[in-house]
């Protein structure tokens, strides 16, 4: 049996409300909130980035896995906001958790599905018997250009998954990847903010790709939407994942536990993986979980997990994802502070 033996998330404390952003750009907040089903989003502090959040998410995963980090044979961080253009994020992570030096490391990049890519490869290496444990992480501190629709959603968070064969919490039953060349969203070298194709990011990109992957995964597994206790999809806003889920045949109740976007925003590579951690926090033995990520450019990774009887015993060994999301210590930023924190203000010497 191959699957998740440890999982953990990290969500920074800062938030900004849709109204606060809309106010600055003269946009109509109620229509954004209604249209995107988005109320607020997480914001990293200046001392937080993809690496620091990956480390904290992994520490939570290790609390649940209770393994020797030296047995981790690979670390893969998927992100579109790796702090260095050249120099891996994963080396810092591996050093911080004590997984060096006998370890494979690569940083993944595929827009918002970089995290699920890392998970897919980590899981596959363990399945192939190459190593005892492998770590896949999705993390981002994504940026939208000021005033752009993306600015209302681009947020920060991380989710980490340790894959192994012993003491599995959620068995990975099936996977499927589906991708085409669809330029719906991109960022050129040296550009600070990404560009996107507006409404082209919807039907021909997000919806076509996720539907393609989900259908293939259901066919491969010979399962139906009603077989699943939970489903989670990439969530660039609050509306898309619910719409695509319903088109595939899932019901709101199956999707709500992993649907974090309305108050978390779009954590890009972290989006569906963090949703999955929220599901694992509450899933019961035998529950089937359906997950399909999405990365612009464009592709999806699909997974079917089955919770084991080991899962309930570890759920409370680290902080629950919803507890971080709904924490009483949330701090709401004004747009000025948010701009400073996110490096949107041009400083001297830059």
């Amino acid at each position: 049996m191959v699957g998740i033996v440890g999982y953990g998330a990290y969500i920074p404390r800062n938030r900004i409300k849709v109204e606060e952003i809309a106010k600055v750009w003269g946009a109509d907040a109620p229509s954004y909130k209604r249209g995107l089903q988005l109320r607020e989003k997480s914001v990293p502090s200046p001392d937080q980035d993809t690496i620091t959040m990956s480390v904290e998410a992994t520490k939570n995963a290790l609390k649940r896995a209770e393994i020797d980090p030296q047995d981790i044979g690979a670390v893969y961080i998927g992100s579109e906001s790796h702090p260095y253009a050249v120099k891996p994020s994963g080396t810092v992570l591996a050093e911080a958790i004590g997984a060096t030096p006998d370890c494979h490391c690569a940083d993944y990049e595929f827009a918002c599905k970089a995290g699920s890519e890392g998970m897919f490869v980590a899981m596959s290496l363990v399945k192939a018997g190459e190593m005892k444990y492998a770590l896949g992480i999705g993390a981002d501190t994504s940026q939208g250009a000021p005033g752009d629709a993306l600015e209302y959603s681009a947020s920060a968070g991380a989710a980490a998954f340790i894959f192994g064969k012993e003491n599995v919490l959620a068995e990975c039953l099936y996977t499927h990847s589906w991708m085409t060349d669809t330029p719906d969203f991109w960022r050129r070298e040296h550009q600070f903010y990404p560009s996107h194709g507006g409404r082209f990011t919807g039907e021909p990109a997000y919806f076509r790709t996720i539907m393609g992957c989900a259908k293939a995964l259901l066919e491969k597994s010979k399962m139906k939407p009603e077989d699943f206790a939970y489903a989670v999809f990439h969530q660039p806003n609050g509306k898309f994942p619910m719409t695509v889920g319903k088109r595939i045949g899932f019901k709101t109740e199956q999707m709500e536990q992993g649907w974090l976007c309305p108050t978390l925003g779009n954590t890009y590579s972290g989006a569906s993986p963090i949703g999955l951690t929220s599901i694992l926090d509450v899933a019961k033995p035998g529950d089937l979980i359906f997950m399909v990520s999405y990365g612009s450019g464009a592709g999806s990774d699909g997974f079917i997990f089955k919770a084991t009887d080991k899962l309930p015993g570890v759920q409370n060994k680290a902080v629950h994802t919803r507890a971080m999301l709904d924490s009483e210590r949330r701090k709401y930023l004004d747009y000025g502070t948010y701009s400073k924190f996110r490096g949107k203000i041009k400083l001297r010497g830059e």
Partner: peptide
């Protein structure tokens, strides 16, 4: 918690 402590301008190490 693991955090970024310093960074040297926009091109130095983190």
């Amino acid at each position: 918690e693991f955090r970024k402590i310093q960074q040297e301008g926009s091109s130095g190490i983190l």
